[in-house]
C-alpha cells in the first residue's frame, strides 16, 4: 500500500472520482490556478481543465447556491470551502436549499453533492478561523456529515461521499493534511455511517472523530501504562451516527468518554451521550463524561489556545473518573 498524506489521499479521491464520473466537478476559492489553499486540488486543473475545476469569486453563498442548482439539474458538484468558518455565509443555501430540496419536492429532486473543506482549529488563527461546526450541520435532517481522521479514511470516505446521492458535509482536519498513512490504491470506498475501532480495548470506550482520534489514541497509550485498556472509536460519520458500534463497545467496557474539539453545549458528544443512555443504560457503570473544546471563542495566544483544546491529559483525567480511580 502506498504511504500518502491525508492531503494527497483527498486529492487521489477527487481525481479518481472525476475520472470515473464526468458529472463530477470541483468548485471553490483558489481550487484551480492556485492549486488549492491547502493544495488538496493540486494538479487537478491541468488534468481536468477549467470547466471541471472552477475558481470562484469569494462569494460563499453564491457558489454554494450555484452548486445546489447544478446538483438539481444533472451534475455532482464538489464545492470546496477554503475553511468551514467561511461556510457560515453559505449556510442558508446548505440548510434551506440543499438539505430540504428532496423533501420539499416530495422526493423529486435529490441533491448529490459534497461541501468540503477544513474545519476546526489549526494553530493561532484566532476566533473567526478556529471553529468546529459539525454539530450545526449534524442537526439538520437531509444532510450527512463526514469527518475522516486518517489518510485512508479521507480517501475512502470522500469517494463514498461524492457517490452519495445526498448533500454531504465533508469536514477535513486542517491539522491533519500532513498526516501520513497507508492508503489503499484505486477503488477504496469507506461506507458512510460506519464507525471504526481505531484501537480495541476492554476497560473504557473513547469516542472521537477527526483530529481528536489521534488525541484519544495518545491518551489510550498512556492509560495502558496505568493498566487501563481503552477502546478508541472513530465516528468517521457524524450523521448518520453509528450508534450500533458505540453501543456494542460500551456494552463491553461499561464506561465511556466522548471527545470532540467543538464546544460542549449541544455538541456532537451530547448526541452520543443521549443515544447511549438509551441503548446501553443497563451496561453503564458510571455517567458518561465529555472532553470538549473550552466554551470560549478561540484565543490567539498559543498557550491559551492549547489549554482550550482536548488533550490526552484531560481525556486521562476523565477516564480515571469514569473508572472510579480518581
Amino acid at each position: 500500500m502506498a504511504i500518502l498524506t491525508y492531503r494527497d489521499a483527498l486529492n487521489e479521491a477527487l481525481a479518481e472520482e472525476m475520472e470515473r464520473d464526468p458529472s463530477v466537478f470541483l468548485m471553490g476559492e483558489e481550487v484551480a490556478v492556485y492549486q488549492g489553499a491547502y493544495k488538496v486540488s493540486k494538479g487537478l486543473l491541468d488534468r481536468f481543465g477549467e470547466d471541471r475545476v472552477v475558481d470562484t469569486p469569494i462569494t460563499e453563498l453564491g457558489f454554494a447556491g450555484l452548486g445546489v442548482g447544478a446538483a438539481m439539474t444533472g451534475t455532482r458538484p464538489v464545492i470546496e470551502f477554503m475553511t468551514f468558518n467561511f461556510a457560515l455565509l453559505a449556510i442558508d443555501q446548505i440548510v434551506n436549499s440543499a438539505a430540504k430540496m428532496l423533501y420539499m419536492s416530495g422526493g423529486q429532486i435529490p441533491i448529490p453533492m459534497v461541501f468540503r473543506g477544513p474545519g476546526g482549529a489549526a494553530l493561532q488563527l484566532g476566533a473567526q478561523h478556529s471553529q468546529a461546526f459539525e454539530s450545526w450541520y449534524a442537526n439538520i435532517p437531509g444532510l450527512k456529515v463526514v469527518m475522516p481522521a486518517t489518510p485512508a479514511d479521507a480517501k475512502g470516505l470522500l469517494k463514498s461521499s461524492i457517490r452519495d446521492n445526498n448533500p454531504v458535509i465533508f469536514i477535513e482536519g486542517e491539522m491533519l493534511y500532513n498526516m501520513k498513512g497507508e492508503v489503499p490504491e484505486g477503488e477504496h470506498l469507506v461506507p458512510l455511517g460506519v464507525a471504526d475501532i481505531k484501537r480495541p480495548g476492554n476497560d473504557v470506550t473513547l469516542v472521537s472523530h477527526s483530529k481528536t482520534v489521534a488525541v484519544a489514541l495518545k491518551a489510550a497509550e498512556q492509560l495502558s501504562a496505568d493498566g487501563i485498556d481503552a477502546e478508541v472509536i472513530d465516528l468517521r460519520t457524524i450523521r448518520p451516527l453509528d450508534i450500533d458500534a458505540l453501543t456494542a463497545s460500551v456494552k463491553k467496557t461499561n464506561r465511556c468518554v466522548v471527545v470532540e474539539e467543538g464546544w460542549n453545549f449541544c455538541g456532537v458528544g451530547a448526541q452520543v451521550v443521549d443515544d447511549l443512555q438509551r441503548t446501553a443504560f443497563d451496561y453503564l457503570d458510571a455517567p458518561i463524561l465529555r472532553v470538549t473544546g473550552a466554551d470560549v471563542p478561540m484565543p490567539y495566544n498559543k498557550q491559551l489556545e492549547k489549554a482550550s483544546k482536548p488533550s490526552p491529559d484531560r481525556i486521562i483525567d476523565a477516564v480515571k473518573r469514569v473508572s472510579y480511580q480518581d
Binding site: N264, F281, Y283, D285, A286, L289, T292, D295, A318, R321
Partner: peptide, 25 residues
Amino acid sequence: ASEATPEPKPATVASDGGRVKASPL
C-alpha cells in the same frame, strides 16, 4: 472546558432516604 461538574466524593452511605444508589450496570 469539559469534564463538567466533578462527581461528589465517596460518602459512607449508599442509600439515600431508602433509595439505593447503584450504577445501571
